[in-house]
Design a protein around this nucleic acid. Structure first.
Lengths: 140, 140
DNA sequence: ATCAATGCAAAAACTTTGCACTGAT
DNA sequence: ATCAGTGCAAAGTTTTTGCATTGAT
């Protein structure tokens, strides 16, 4: 994902946009909120990008199909690069960690259910919420 | 759902709580936000319940297992009565209609996936988005 | 040079909280 | 009478917007 992709999407290759892309690429497993990305910039003192810009850019990226926006149960909106392959999410309610998975049985079953209802499926998402193994072992 | 249920949950049977229950019962298919419920009260001029109370009551109801909280695409939290049976949602992107369904194969599969990841599942939800049969036949 | 993009601050949208008053038991 | 429950207003969160300035082409 680079300048070319941005231009194809009709977006100028500005520093904020490139930095946001770079940050998402550097954290492929972290589903980051706008604030998360902002904090990364704050910590590396040489980048000065406003939070409003991050929100704007992420929304543009979503429209352009560059990122996916998810709304987890705790209300925060998080983003990940859209690599084109569908997957579902398992969210730890304690540490916020997100694992991704795909299950062919479930995928198939969803198609069958939609068909049974005469429903023309355009998208679907499955969230499993709970406590990840890491947090379980750390709990007192 | 009545005074008895509230008392069982350790909640006093107050007017706001009874009215909120009643409103959710009167709109079994509408997944309502706190604001939606507030508007119902505003419109029927004889009920005067503060928005903060509605938020508080809904959160208590959620803890008590009386209602389920869902997050819709726009980020608002919506609620529906919890009839005890878990179900998933199929949302028509055209008419906004919501159909509910349960599939034992998917339910089982989710448990297996969570277990495989050592994940202690507390909740899960599946949304299928698309166009319902009704809208398909009406499309021009 | 042009017009999109940004930063900042202000506001909007949604939700929670502090506190004094009210009401169910 | 008691203490949970409520209303209101104020504050907290998260996200959006207005506007003057900056920057990519």
């Amino acid at each position: 994902m680079d300048k070319q992709n941005l231009k194809q999407a009709g977006l100028k290759a500005t520093l904020p946009r490139l930095k946001i892309l770079e940050t998402l690429e550097n954290n492929p497993d972290a589903h980051m909120s706008a604030e998360d990305i902002y904090k990364v910039f704050m910590d590396s003192n040489d980048i000065d990008i406003g939070l409003a810009t991050i929100y704007r850019v992420l929304t543009q990226f979503e429209s352009a199909g560059i990122v996916c926006r998810h709304r987890f149960e705790d209300g925060r909106a998080v983003f990940e690069l859209d690599h084109g392959k569908h997957h579902d999410h398992m969210v730890c309610m304690q540490c916020g960690d997100v694992a991704e998975f795909v299950d062919d049985v479930i995928e198939q079953r969803q198609r069958e259910i939609a068909q049974k209802f005469g429903f023309q499926m355009t998208d679907h998402c499955l969230y499993i919420y709970g406590i990840c193994s890491n947090c379980q072992s750390q709990s007192k």
